[in-house]
Nucleic acid binder design. Sequence first.
DNA 1: CGTTGCTTTGATGCCCGTCAATGATTGTGG
DNA 2: CCACAATCATTGACGGGCATCAAAGCAACG
Lengths: 228, 228
Amino acid sequence: MSYAAAIATDQPRAVVRPPVDESLSAMQAIGQVAHFSRGETIFSDGDDALFAYKVISGTVRLCKLLSDGRRQIAEFLQAGDFFGFELRDSYALTAEALEDAVVVRFARSRLDRLSEERRDVQRQMITLLSRDLCATQDHLLLLGRQTAKERVASFLLILAARANAKNGTTLEVPMCRQDIADYLGLTIETVCRAISELKRSRMIAVPNRLQIVVLNIAALRETAGADA
Amino acid sequence: MSYAAAIATDQPRAVVRPPVDESLSAMQAIGQVAHFSRGETIFSDGDDALFAYKVISGTVRLCKLLSDGRRQIAEFLQAGDFFGFELRDSYALTAEALEDAVVVRFARSRLDRLSEERRDVQRQMITLLSRDLCATQDHLLLLGRQTAKERVASFLLILAARANAKNGTTLEVPMCRQDIADYLGLTIETVCRAISELKRSRMIAVPNRLQIVVLNIAALRETAGADA
DNA sequence: CGTTGCTTTGATGCCCGTCAATGATTGTGG
DNA sequence: CCACAATCATTGACGGGCATCAAAGCAACG
């Protein structure tokens, strides 16, 4: 993939994540491509926040850790997603490549200068942060008030929305069960059991561990818990 | 309280919430004061996002609801806090006055025009959103991976940090137990039991339901779970 | 002083975490 | 190409932490 083409990449993204407008193309000039392989750390909680990032390919997870090893994943990021745009001196969470990933990174110092000149870049950052904040607030409701089964169904619906899936669509699930569990605030066993149950009730099929077929998205929505 | 003084109000806020700089004083010109009484709704999930707000006095809660009544509180806002600044067509959550509250509201249309002229206003919004996003990410970890006792201790530490409390400081707790429970993803009974336990182990004292005295903040931090 | 609303405490049960074993898949070396 | 190990996923048995149900305490108010 060429440099320019890489940065321009914004896949179609249905309802949840409308494509970011063209203003960010101004950022192309200051971005550098970087590769990370499966499991590699992009930055760690507490590091100086020197760069902001955009995912070109692969998947990245953002997570928080407790000293005893407990882990909470805040977000999975895929091609077209931005991260590390919080305006802070140091990162407040850790970013890791979940599978081999290509990212573009923007030096904060240059990004700050750019945003002095171009209002649309600042506005774009506001849009990104707003979107992220809303998604994280939905995540709060999921973790605080939904049951295990509801959480797993909700998770599948998030994947489905990203892929613009209908009944019959096969979802790519790049993350392992442990990652899903850490996103949903559950254990791996509970995630497995919930998936098995959805399988038994014919809402999904599971051809292999990296793919899930949506069979009855209406029933999935029902299971996820009718929100207000 | 005079209009100007009201808007200028930014209490000292210790580590967690450094005071917002003066640039927002430009917003004074477009703000209107509004009063809400205990329990009143400021805006609802789904409403057109016509205003952004700043709290002058009182306490506001931001929450999400499920159709069956389950509730998750995302944030408690007090004097000096801003909310509703997400750049979206409609609000993604509900804002309610938890006790009688005075707020300043800024018409989004005028705010947008103002931010076209003044870069510092945009930058301020980025700062606000960044701060909010980081706080919400911490909240994720709490809801997803902490035990009931850890959550309650963490909550008290959040109050303590806001008040810049030391051992012996009396915290004002304007929210009822149900609100605390809905913030922590627990039931009211579990919150009560955890508070009682902290009381028994002499980390806190509870003179009445609206006040909690910090007796051993180091032990509280220990109980909250040593994070990485 | 009874009512009302909120808090606290107790008894019980269930959902999900823990522990453990088995399957399934992938990669490696003989 | 197969044997074996390594990794991850799945399923089962069991227990604990928190939710649920119920009742009693406590403060504010008419």
